[in-house]
Design a binder for these strands. Structure first.
Lengths: 351, 351
DNA sequence: TACTTTAGTGCAATCGATTACAAAAATTAT
DNA sequence: ATAATTTTTGTAATCGATTGCACTAAAGTA
């Protein structure tokens, strides 16, 4: 239980009878210090078990080597995967990742940003809350010269970079796939259209319908929460009408699953009568007995890319703000919930 | 785009023609400063948009208000949920949570601990890697007087607190439940017995069998990875013998699912012929068409409790090391994969 | 009035590392 | 050998906030 005696450069300097400045330079491999002393200092430092005090260094340099990540909830598969990507890309560069949750509330978001700025993070990554409308708090980050990189859910703020997937394309791919399965009356469960991502998925859906000359019935587009029950109730609503959909493209896997469960309860055959496609490629989609087709957002990759953008950003001249928009390609994982061609074949769920 | 002018207490002191010391005291509501000056300083600080420099403060006080969390992978539902709990409990107290991944490798774990100690975190939370045997790096944390709290996967190190679930009881409950379903030949898929958690689940299984006077056949206990394919292959192995199990208690939900898929492929009826119970209550277990019975580990609660232990720890006198072991009660979620009583009844999956 | 308290502030050191600038030591040139 | 360089090292300020100690002025006491 040796009491911890923090060793500082002063301790080293005293022991060697040289100045702390020399020690500091030697440890930083400053060529102005003779090789002899440099080696001596290094050796002594190691022997004394010297550990640099990052705090002092951070105070002096203004760089903490900490970055903050703000997400709605950390235990959502998508977000924790992005964070994983960020951590894995940044960790080798000596950065630590601080996580914050907004709980989908702008006010929390504002607070988190403030405390992060207070602790002098070198950068911030974030996916905005659903309730975020104004961007004052975000612009504030910019004005403090702290790089901010959006991922997935972004806001249009001049000078800020972002990494997203091509949600439009994701929506398009999903819809096109359904069309190719022979579906004509395709319903769409959209999310909160206040968020760009959902708007884009919706527009991708509309575009695909148009491109293939299929009418997108207005009543078939519903705003549905990302919950099983919401999906189920949406199905109930839809099936109350005279014209019933023969496919559902849900912008949420959860709503898609709820829909599937409800349809089964109603005795509707999937994918024979109705094809269903979700979005996000949540882990459960591939585990189901009837695996669910879904659009993958490559979250880990998204995190890695966001980290890369950040690294570029801090490398460049600090006066010049670069605005970089990285758009990743979504991938459609076709599974049984929409794959009519597997009906006669043995069931094989992809991935 | 006003260039960011960092306001310090010196700026305030200059403006008011008082010393920085007075400003500092006033801002900290030190009663030695007259109410008049205190209010004046506060007002001026607010007006000048002063923000305390946490780095300077941290350097002076030695407290960063940062804690580190080390987990194998952050995007596993269990771990991200624990982290959520930690974050939510600690955030109101002004702490930030830094996340690190060990990738199930001790060497990473050692590095992470070192960098965390270097950045002077006020505490460390961790779930050890599977490969962790020696505990030198952990004892080092102790010797630096940094509180460390284990959660879920702990090591026995004198003086260190931990928060876990009662895995023995979890194993017991699961097994007991299977016995009550009328199962007699219960197989067990255990995880890496090097980890306490798996050993305890196994022992809970053994104890339940013993208590109910049922023989635990040695060949029915297999070490199985936490992967679908491992569960499937384990089933194939088991069903190659003359005596076949009538139930499986898997220490992993993934292996349980793999087993279920394999059994279905073999035409074995679940739960009629074989009951299956998993462990962890992964989100997918309740979404399946045949929802899987599983033992819930209350991860968010575990995180919250770990955070509480930490808070107590730093409150207490620093010389006295308290060793607190919090053991949470696991909860068995009975679902269709093991619930024979629901066979004639309408399917209702709990939770 | 003279003297002790007490309240309110300021001075200066401190936390540990970095870095202009100055100074000393070692080399080279003349 | 001495001046001119070049190397190497030291001094002291700095990053911002905190705090023990000292000091001033006002209030209280005798």
């Amino acid at each position: 239980m040796a009491e911890k005696e923090k060793v500082t450069i002063y301790d080293i300097s005293k022991k060697l009878n040289i100045s702390a400045a020399t020690v500091s330079r030697a440890l930083n491999n400053n060529p102005k210090i003779s090789l002899k002393t440099r080696k001596l200092v290094m050796k002594t430092a190691a022997k004394m078990n010297y550990k640099q005090n990052k705090l002092a260094q951070a105070l002096k340099s203004g760089k903490t080597h900490n970055v903050g990540v703000i997400v709605p909830y950390i235990n959502r598969n998508f977000f924790s995967s992005v964070i994983r990507g960020i951590e894995e890309e940044l960790s080798p560069h000596g950065y630590h990742v601080i996580i914050c949750q907004s709980h989908e509330d702008v006010n929390n978001e504002i607070n988190q940003i403030n405390t992060l700025l207070n602790t002098q993070v070198d950068g911030i990554f974030m996916s905005v809350a659903k309730t975020t409308q104004k961007t004052d708090h975000i612009e504030k980050v910019l004005s403090e010269n702290t790089p901010l990189v959006f991922f997935d859910r972004k806001k249009d703020v001049a000078g800020l970079s972002s990494v997203t997937i091509d949600d439009f394309r994701g929506g398009y791919l999903a819809t096109e796939h359904l069309i190719k399965q022979g579906c004509k009356k395709i319903a769409h469960f959209s999310g909160d259209l206040n968020l760009e991502i959902y708007k884009n998925r919706y527009e991708g859906y509309i575009a695909a319908m148009k491109d293939y000359g299929i009418e997108a019935i207005k009543e078939f587009s519903l705003q549905v929460n990302s919950k099983l029950e919401s999906g189920a109730s949406a199905v109930r609503d839809l099936w109350n009408h005279r014209i019933k959909p023969d496919a559902i493209f849900s912008a949420s896997d959860y709503a898609a699953l709820g829909a599937i469960q409800e349809l089964k309860k109603m005795g509707v055959k999937i994918p024979d009568e109705v094809c269903v496609v979700g979005f996000s490629n949540e882990p459960f989609t591939k585990y189901m007995e009837l695996p669910i087709t879904s659009v993958d957002q490559t979250p880990v990759d998204m995190g890695r890319n966001a980290a890369k953008v950040f690294l570029e950003q801090i490398q460049g001249s600090k006066t010049l703000t670069i605005e970089k928009k990285v758009v990743l390609a979504p991938e459609l994982y076709i599974r049984d919930s929409s794959n009519r061609e597997t009906i006669e074949k043995p069931l094989v769920s992809k991935e």
